[in-house]
Design a binder for these strands. Structure first.
Lengths: 213, 213
DNA sequence: TACTTGTTCAAACGTTCGTTTAACTTTATG
DNA sequence: CATAAAGTTAAACGAACGTTTGAACAAGTA
C-alpha cells in the first residue's frame, strides 16, 4: 500500500483534487497553471490535455459539486413527510455534504457573481433546477399551509447562504478566534439551523458547546 | 453642470467607483489595470499614484465597506430596546446599506476566503470587532433570556450571509428568472428576514409580491 | 519670475500568464 | 510482434500582467 514515487496513478484525479484545494484557498484566477501542475506533480500540459482549458477544469469542479447538491435536494425535499421534516432532512444532508466538500463549496459560491458568460450559463442551468425543486417542494406547500408566500428565487439563495456561512467564513473566523470552527460540532450546527428556520433564533439552542464569553 | 471632457474633476474618486463596479462584476484578479484605467478615463499610472498598488485599491474598497457596516452594527445592535427590536433595527439598516453598496458587498464577500495574508489580516481586524459586538449585544442577552447559547463566530457569519444572499445571488437568479430581483421589494425582504429570524419560516410572510407559480 | 507641489502622460520595464507544438514513452489491442 | 491509442514530456508561443520611469503640465506661493 505504499504509494511512493511511481508517477503512474491517475493524473487526472490528482489534478482535479489539487485544483479544488488551490482554487478554494487562493482563488481561481490567482492560481497559475504552473503552480497547479507542480503541486499535482504532473507536467504543465496535462491540465489542458485532460480538461481542455483552465476554465474547463473549473467547470468540471462546479458540475461535480452542483450535481450532487441538486441530487441531495431532490432526494430530501421530495418524498414523504411534512414540510418541517423534509426541510430538516435537507438541511442535515446538505450540511454534511458541505462539510465533506467544503473546498468545492467555497469555489462554487465565491466564483458566483463573476460575469464570465461561459461560467454563469453553467451555473444558471443548475440554479434553475434548484429553484424549481424549492418552489415545488417548499414554497408551494408552505403557501398552502400558511397562506404566506416566499419566492423560490429568494428562498433558495437564503437557504444555501445560511447553510454555507459556517464554511465560507470558517477560515476568517479561525483567524479572528482560533478554534472557533471546532466550537460547534456539525450536528449542533445542523440543529441550530433547523431551530432558526422553524422557530427563529429562540429555537436555535445547542446542547454541547463551550460557554466562552 | 455639464461634466463633459474637462479631464480635471477628481480622478481618484472616479478610479475608486470604477474599480468597485468592475471588481464586483468581473472579479478582482480578472480585472486588469489597463481596463480599469480606460473605463475610469484616467492614465494607467494614476491607479498606482493614488492607491500605491492594485491591492491597495482593493483594501481601500474593503475598508470603506466594512467600516460602515461595523458602524451600522454598533449603532443598531447597541442602545435601547429588547433583543428582538434591536435585531430588527440592525437587519433593516444592514439590508438598506447592502442595497446601496451592493457592489462593495459582493467584492467583500466574494474575496473572503482567499488566503492573501495582507488582505485576510485586514478583514480579520474588522471581523473581530463585529464578532465582539454580536457577542455583547446579541449572544449574551440571548443566553440570559433563553438559556441557549450561539457563539458569535457562528451567528455573525450566519446573519451576514443571510442578509447578503439576495445581493450575492441576485445576478444569478436574474439569469434563472428575469425580473426575480424585483419580485420582492427591499422592505418585504427585510420583513421576511426579521420574520424568519424571530419566528422561523412560518413568520416570514410578505404582504405584497406576485404569486407566480 | 522662480520654485514648489500635485497631477497627468506615453513608454517601457521584466515577469508571468494560458496555451500549443512536436517528439517521446507507455499501455492496450489484434 | 505490429500498430494504434493514451499518456507524458520539454520547450516555446504571443499576449497580458502590475509596476516604474522621467518628463511634461497646472496651480499656488514667495
Amino acid at each position: 500500500m505504499s504509494d511512493k514515487k511511481q508517477h503512474k496513478p491517475n493524473s487526472k484525479e490528482r489534478i482535479l483534487q489539487t485544483a479544488i484545494s488551490l482554487f478554494a484557498s487562493k482563488g481561481f484566477a490567482e492560481t497559475g497553471m504552473r503552480e497547479l501542475a507542480a503541486e499535482a506533480e504532473v507536467n504543465l500540459s496535462m491540465v489542458n490535455y485532460f480538461f481542455g482549458s483552465k476554465k474547463g477544469l473549473l467547470k468540471e469542479i462546479l458540475d461535480g459539486f452542483l450535481s450532487q447538491y441538486l441530487a441531495i435536494a431532490r432526494e430530501n425535499l421530495a418524498g414523504k413527510g411534512d414540510l418541517q421534516s423534509r426541510l430538516k432532512r435537507f438541511i442535515a444532508a446538505s450540511v454534511n455534504y458541505f462539510e465533506a466538500e467544503r473546498n468545492s463549496l467555497i469555489i462554487t459560491i465565491s466564483e458566483l457573481p463573476h460575469d464570465d458568460p461561459e461560467i454563469v450559463e453553467h451555473k444558471a442551468a443548475w440554479a434553475g433546477q434548484m429553484v424549481e425543486i424549492v418552489n415545488r417542494e417548499l414554497c408551494k406547500p408552505h403557501t398552502a399551509e400558511t397562506g404566506q408566500y416566499i419566492p423560490p428565487t429568494c428562498l433558495a439563495p437564503m437557504l444555501t447562504s445560511l447553510m454555507a456561512s459556517r464554511f465560507l467564513f470558517g477560515p476568517l473566523m479561525e483567524e479572528v478566534k482560533a478554534g472557533s470552527s471546532k466550537a460547534v460540532s456539525t450536528e449542533d450546527y445542523t440543529k441550530m439551523l433547523v431551530g432558526i428556520l422553524l422557530q427563529g433564533i429562540t429555537g436555535a439552542d445547542i446542547k454541547s458547546g463551550e460557554r466562552n464569553i
